[in-house]
Design a protein around this nucleic acid. Structure first.
Lengths: 221, 221
DNA sequence: TAATAAATGGGGGTAATTACCCATTTTATC
DNA sequence: GATAAAATGGGTAATTACCCCCATTTATTA
C-alpha cells in the first residue's frame, strides 16, 4: 500500500452517471466524513475499459465501482484490476439486487459490497476499515443472500441452452447450433426448467432476469 | 409561482438513491451553478408516495424526479402532482432509455426531461429557463426518439393480453380472466405479435421490455 | 474401484402456441 | 348514415413446448 498511518489515501471512482460520481467524490474528499483528511479522488471512469485504464495509471488505494456499466462490466473488470493493481481495495457500490450476481461478487473477493438503495452511512463508516485491510458486505445484502433460495448450479450445457432460449431460439435451432440431437437439447431444457422450478419459457425468462443469470441486452441479437 | 424576479426558488428532489439526492441537492444549492443564489432544497423523497406527500406539503417551484422508484412510479405520480401543485415545474432526470416510456413522459407534459447518462451540464444550464416557464428535452433523448421505430399503438385488449402473457398466463387463462372465448384471446395475442413483429413469446417479452411496454417487476405475481 | 453426475439420444404422448382461413357485432369517428 | 377499427367467435392444421418413460458413454469424485 502506498499510504500508511495518517497519510492521505487516494481513490478512483467508476460509475456511468456523473451525478453519482460527483456525489461520491464530494463525500470521499470531505474531511472527517470517511477519513480525517479526506480521500483524494485521482480519477473517474464512466465504463469498464476506462476503469481499467485509470486504475493502471494511478494505482489507487481504493476503487469505488458500480458494476452495471457499458463496455466490459463486472467480473472481467475485477479480474483485470486484481492483476494490474493488487493493493487496490475494490469496493462495489451498486443498485443490483440479483442474488446470483451479488454472490458472484463476494466470491470474486471484493473488499466491500454496498447498496445504492438506502442510506450511505454504512458505506462511509466501513470504508476506513476496508482501506486498512478489512472487508464488509452491506447488511441488506447479507440478509438478501441468506433468505434467497440458492441459485441452482447449472451445467455448462444448461447455461448454453438458457442463453439460446432467452434469445428466442427453438429447440430445433438450439440442437443444430450445439450439434446435437433435438432430443438432447430438449433434455437440457427440461433439466434447466426443473432446476429453476419453472413451467414455461416466460417464467424461465423472469427467473433468469431476477437471478442475474442473463443480462437485459442478451435478447434478440 | 411563489417566487419571482431575483428571489430564491425552492425544490423537492425525488430519487431512490441517497447518493443521487445528495449530489443533486449539492448542485442545486451551489450559488452560481444553476441560479445566482442557489435553489433551496426543501424536501427529499425516496418513492412515489413520499414524493406526492412532500409536494403537497411544500408546493415547490421545482420537482426534480426520477421516475423509476418503488411504490407508485411514473405517470400516476405526475398526474397527482399536477393536481395538487399546478405551478410546480416537473423535471424528470432518469436513466431509462425505452422510447415508449420517454415518449409517454413528454406527452404527459413534463417541463424538462434529462438523462443521467452523460454530463449534467445540459440539466444545469436549462433549469433556469424551465423555472421561468420554458421546457426542454435532452438532446440525447430527442435523437433517440427521432431514430426509434414508433412504438405500435396497441388496443386496450391487446395491452391487457400482453400484460397477462408476460406474467405467465396461457391463452386459456387469459380468456377466462377476460371473460371471453379462448379464440378471442388467441386473436388478441396474434394481433399483438403481428404489430410487434415477433414470432414467439420470448421475442414478445424482449420487445416489450425494450419498448418499456411492461415493467421488470410485472412478471410472476 | 465404485458411485455419481453430465451429456448423449430415443419413444410416446398431451398441451400449448403459431398461423392461416372465415364470419358477426359493437363502437368510435367522420 | 357510412366507414373503419375494435372486439368478438369459429375451423383447421402444423409446429413447438412440455412431461413422462428409457438407455449408453464419459468424466469426475469418493
Amino acid at each position: 500500500m502506498k499510504n500508511g498511518g495518517n497519510t492521505q489515501f487516494c481513490a478512483v471512482i467508476a460509475d456511468d452517471h456523473e451525478i453519482v460520481r460527483a456525489g461520491l467524490q464530494s463525500a470521499l474528499e470531505r474531511p472527517g466524513l470517511v477519513e480525517e483528511h479526506g480521500i483524494a479522488v485521482v480519477g473517474q471512469a464512466v465504463n469498464g475499459l476506462e476503469t481499467i485504464e485509470k486504475v493502471k495509471l494511478h494505482r489507487p488505494d481504493l476503487l469505488l465501482l458500480d458494476i452495471s456499466m457499458p463496455l466490459a462490466s463486472g467480473a472481467e473488470v475485477l479480474l483485470d484490476i486484481r492483476r494490474w493493481s493488487r493493493d487496490t481495495k475494490i469496493v462495489v457500490f451498486t443498485a443490483i439486487t440479483a442474488p446470483g450476481l451479488l454472490g458472484g461478487l463476494i466470491e470474486s473477493q471484493v473488499d466491500g459490497l454496498f447498496s445504492k438503495s438506502g442510506g450511505n452511512d454504512e458505506l462511509y463508516s466501513k470504508l476506513p476499515l476496508i482501506l486498512r485491510g478489512g472487508r464488509h458486505v452491506a447488511k441488506v445484502f447479507v440478509d438478501l443472500l441468506r433468505d434467497a433460495t440458492p441459485a441452482p448450479d447449472l451445467t455448462q450445457r444448461e447455461r448454453q441452452t438458457l442463453t439460446m432460449i432467452v434469445s428466442g431460439k427453438t429447440n430445433a435451432e438450439i440442437a443444430a447450433l450445439m450439434g446435437v440431437s433435438p432430443k438432447t437439447a430438449e433434455k437440457h431444457r427440461a433439466s434447466l426448467m426443473r432446476k429453476l422450478g419453472v413451467r414455461s419459457v416466460v417464467e424461465l425468462m423472469s427467473r433468469a432476469l431476477q437471478d442475474g443469470l442473463i443480462e437485459q441486452h442478451n435478447h434478440l441479437k
